[in-house]
Design a protein around this nucleic acid. Structure first.
Length: 208
DNA sequence: TAAGTGATGCAT
DNA sequence: TGCATCACTTAA
């Protein structure tokens, strides 16, 4: 028995990967793997769309001050920041920058890789392109909810983590070009170019 | 294009 | 306490 779905050989990105500003980390995450494992089994996808939220960015949840909701953003890098929005949806972020500096990368879309049956179930049989093409959609497909807030993304035993793609450059070439645009759904700092995506992926949530 | 959904955070 | 806001999704 070499490897099976119960013992995947994922190699988590190290904590110092998340130490730089989210502006740098957001594009660097493209092509790596978001991995979720729970009682139902493992699920994973290629990260194809991200947005950076910065410490001195008025659209960042941590901009004003630390609160109960954004506490994880102020913690050490390489942990999850998961929040509930619009009464319906969760959004998943990777905390960046040193402890005390509230920065994070919102993962807006992944391209399904494994656990497709689970994603299909959780997304109620919708077409595959709609499973994970949006921040709320991917959280539903991977069953990412508030209890995962603060989870360690640098530990392969964690319920959610990010694994290194050893062929990330090759994959970026295949799914490129890498496009940088304005962020989606915000009302301030709307012109800042902090959204990044791989234009060749059909799972990108919105073009432009 | 707009309604739904409920936690959050700031103003009372 | 009250209420506007919200890093979204779906159905139309």
């Amino acid at each position: 028995m070499s490897e099976d779905s119960s013992q995947p050989s994922w190699d988590p990105l190290p904590r110092d990967f998340y130490l730089p500003t989210a502006r740098k980390v957001a594009p660097a995450l493209l092509g790596h793997f978001l991995v979720r494992q729970d009682r139902e089994g493992p699920c994973a996808g290629v990260i194809v769309e991200t947005e950076a939220y910065l410490a001195h960015d008025p659209s960042c949840h941590g901009y004003a001050r630390q609160t109960a909701r954004n506490r994880s953003m102020y913690g050490p890098p390489g942990h999850a920041y998961v929040y509930f929005i619009y009464g319906n949806h969760f959004c998943f972020n990777a905390v960046c920058g040193p402890e005390g500096v509230p920065e994070a990368v919102l993962v807006r879309a992944i391209q399904p890789l494994m656990g497709l049956d689970l994603m299909c179930q959780r997304r109620k049989g919708r077409r595959e392109l709609d499973w994970t093409s949006g921040p709320g959609r991917l959280c539903e497909a991977l069953h990412i909810t508030r209890p995962l807030d603060g989870a360690d993304l640098c530990n392969a035993a964690s319920p959610v983590f990010i694994a290194r793609n050893p062929e990330v450059l090759k994959l970026r070439r295949a799914l490129g070009p890498l496009v940088r645009t304005r962020r989606i759904g915000i009302s301030v700092a709307t012109h800042w170019l902090l959204r990044f995506y791989l234009d060749g992926s059909a799972w990108v949530s919105k073009r432009r």
